[in-house]
Amino acid sequence: MVVEHTYHVKGGDFTHAGSASSKVKKLLKQLDIDPKKIKNIVIALYEAEVNIVAHAWEGEIWIAISPEKITMVLTDKGPGIPDIEQAMVEGFSTASKEVREMGFGAGMGLSNIRRNTDELKITSEVGTGTKVEMVNYF
C-alpha cells in the first residue's frame, strides 16, 4: 500500500510556504512512526519547499508513503543550481536581499535537508530547474 500526494508550489508565495509540509506532517502523525523521524521528514520537506518558493518560479512536490519509507520528489522550474557542492556548504546563499529580509535564505537550507534525510539526490540544470529527491525510512 502506497499513499501518494502531489502539491503545487508557487514561487514567491512566502505567505503559503510550508503548507505542503504541514499537510504531510498531518498524514504521518496518523501512522505509527517515531515522532522524531516525523520531525526530520517535515524539517527537510519544509526547507525544500521554501527553496522552491524563494528561488524558483513554480514547482511540484510529489510524496509517496509506504509502510517502510517516505519518498519526496520536488521538481521546480527555475534558475537551477550551477554548483551543487557549493550550495550544500553551510552559510552559502544566493538568496536576494528581499528574501533574506523575510527571514529566509540564510544558507542553511540544503545542509539542513541533508542532516534530516536518509537519502538525498539533487540534480539541476541551469536555466531550467532543479529536482530534489529525498527518502526517509521509518
Binding site: M1, V2, V3, L27, Q30, L31, D32, I33, I65, S66, P67, F138
Partner: peptide, 8 residues
C-alpha cells in the same frame, strides 16, 4: 502501520 496506511 500497513493497516493505518490503508485506512489513510
Amino acid at each position: 502501520r500497513a493497516k493505518a496506511l490503508e485506512k489513510l
